[in-house]
Amino acid sequence: MKLSLDLQYFAQEKTEKATPKKRQDTRKKGQVPKSTDVNTALILLGVFLFMFLYAGVLGDFIVNMMQHVFLEYIHWEVSEQTIPSLFNEIAAESAIVILPIMLITLVVGVSASLIQVGFMFTPEAIAFKLEKINPLKGIKRIFSIRALVELLKSLLKIILVGVLVFSIIWFSLDSLVFLSQRPVAAGFGELARLTGIIGASVAFLLLLLAVPDYMYQRFDHEKQIRMSKQDVKDEHKKMEGDPLIKSKRRKKQMDMAMQRMMQEVPEADVVITNPTHFAIALKYDEDTMAAPKVTAKGADYVALRIKSLAQKHEIVMVENKPLARSLYAQTEIGDEVPENLFKAVAEVLAYVYRLTNE
Rank of each mutant, 00 (worst) to 15 (best):
I133Q: 03
A91R: 01
G187T: 13
V107Q: 06
I83N: 05
Q12K: 05
G109N: 10
M65N: 14
S111I: 15
R218H: 15
F278V: 14
F70Y: 14
L208D: 09
L106A: 14
T288E: 12
L205G: 02
G30A: 02
Y9N: 07
L164A: 06
M254C: 01
S308I: 00
E336I: 03
L191M: 14
A41F: 06
I159S: 08
L99M: 13
T276H: 12
I98W: 03
V265R: 08
N134A: 03
A299G: 11
E77K: 15
N320A: 06
E240K: 14
I272R: 11
L206F: 12
W76E: 12
T122K: 02
R146V: 03
A186Y: 12
K21D: 06
E267K: 13
E124W: 03
E332P: 03
A147V: 05
M51A: 04
I133K: 04
K129Y: 07
S175T: 14
K312M: 09
V352Q: 08
E240F: 07
A303K: 05
K229N: 10
N340M: 13
E267N: 11
S79K: 08
K307E: 05
V107M: 11
A210M: 04
F342S: 03
G189I: 11
T19A: 08
L355G: 01
K312I: 01
V108R: 07
E336Q: 11
A344W: 09
L136N: 02
M317C: 13
M317L: 05
P243T: 05
V108C: 02
L106G: 15
G189T: 10
N274Q: 09
I115T: 09
L304G: 01
V47K: 00
T40D: 02
D231Q: 12
I159D: 02
D234C: 05
P135R: 01
T105E: 10
I280S: 10
L206S: 01
G334M: 09
I225P: 11
G241N: 11
F52I: 05
S308R: 11
L194I: 14
